[in-house]
Simulated scan of single mutants.
Amino acid sequence: MWEHVGDPVSVPNVVGMPFHLADALAASRGVTLANPDPDGPPIGAIAWRRAAYITSQQPAAGGIVSRHSSVTVEIVDHGGADDMAVQGQPDAPPADAAHVHLERAKLIQLSPEGQRT
């Protein structure tokens, strides 16, 4: 059985970053960016000399992996992402979400002169 023997490191959040900056950040944290297709070319060869941005990653940011592990990323050319694409949402609501109380909007009718009625 094969085991990871490197020190544990935290996976950085690279989603939304330009590839060259994400690659540098990943390297500084002890992980390597990789193509999700194991039979495909290295992700660096795909992104080389392109304005590529990271659209997703696995494992997710904050996960603990062994040093030198791969983080698979999907990339898209600059301007090629869906305009409605959103970055992943956190699994848990913010700690202060319990204090939010929604109120129904109050409508104010104005007379033609701008006075309240």
Rank of each mutant, 00 (worst) to 15 (best):
G30L: 04
G80E: 11
S56M: 08
G79W: 00
G80F: 05
R67A: 05
V71T: 08
V73C: 09
G44C: 10
A92H: 02
L33F: 10
A34L: 04
H78N: 11
I54K: 09
A51K: 14
A60Y: 05
Q58K: 06
G44K: 02
R29C: 12
I54V: 15
V71D: 01
S69V: 08
G30C: 11
T72L: 06
G88K: 14
I75Q: 09
A85C: 04
D82P: 00
S70G: 00
A95M: 09
A27C: 01
V71K: 07
P93A: 13
G30M: 09
V76Q: 13
S70M: 12
V71C: 07
G40T: 07
A61C: 07
I75R: 05
A85S: 14
A60R: 13
W48T: 09
G80R: 10
P38Y: 05
P93M: 05
Q58I: 03
S70I: 04
A52L: 00
G30D: 11
A34H: 04
I54N: 11
P42D: 06
I75S: 03
V86M: 14
Q57Y: 04
E74A: 05
P36Y: 04
P41I: 13
P41G: 01
V86K: 15
T32G: 01
I43Y: 12
Q58V: 08
A60K: 14
V65E: 08
G30W: 08
S66L: 10
P41K: 00
A47Y: 01
P93W: 08
P94V: 07
V86Y: 04
M84N: 14
Q89H: 15
I75P: 02
H78S: 12
D83C: 04
P41N: 05
P94A: 11
P36R: 00
P42G: 02
Q89I: 13
P90W: 06
Q89W: 01
V86H: 12
A85P: 07
A61W: 04
D91Q: 11
V86R: 15
L33T: 04
D39W: 03
A61P: 00
S56V: 02
H78A: 14
A95I: 06
S56N: 12
A81G: 07
D91F: 11
Q57A: 03
A92D: 12
V31K: 00
S69D: 07
P38W: 02
P93L: 13
R67I: 10
S69N: 00
I54S: 00
A60L: 12
N35C: 00
D83L: 10
A95L: 13
D77E: 12
A26C: 08
L25P: 05
A26Q: 03
G40P: 05
Y53W: 07
P41S: 12
Y53F: 08
R50L: 13
Q57K: 06
D37A: 14
T72S: 14
D96V: 06
G62M: 02
V76F: 03
Q58G: 02
L33D: 01
L33I: 13
P90N: 12
S70R: 13
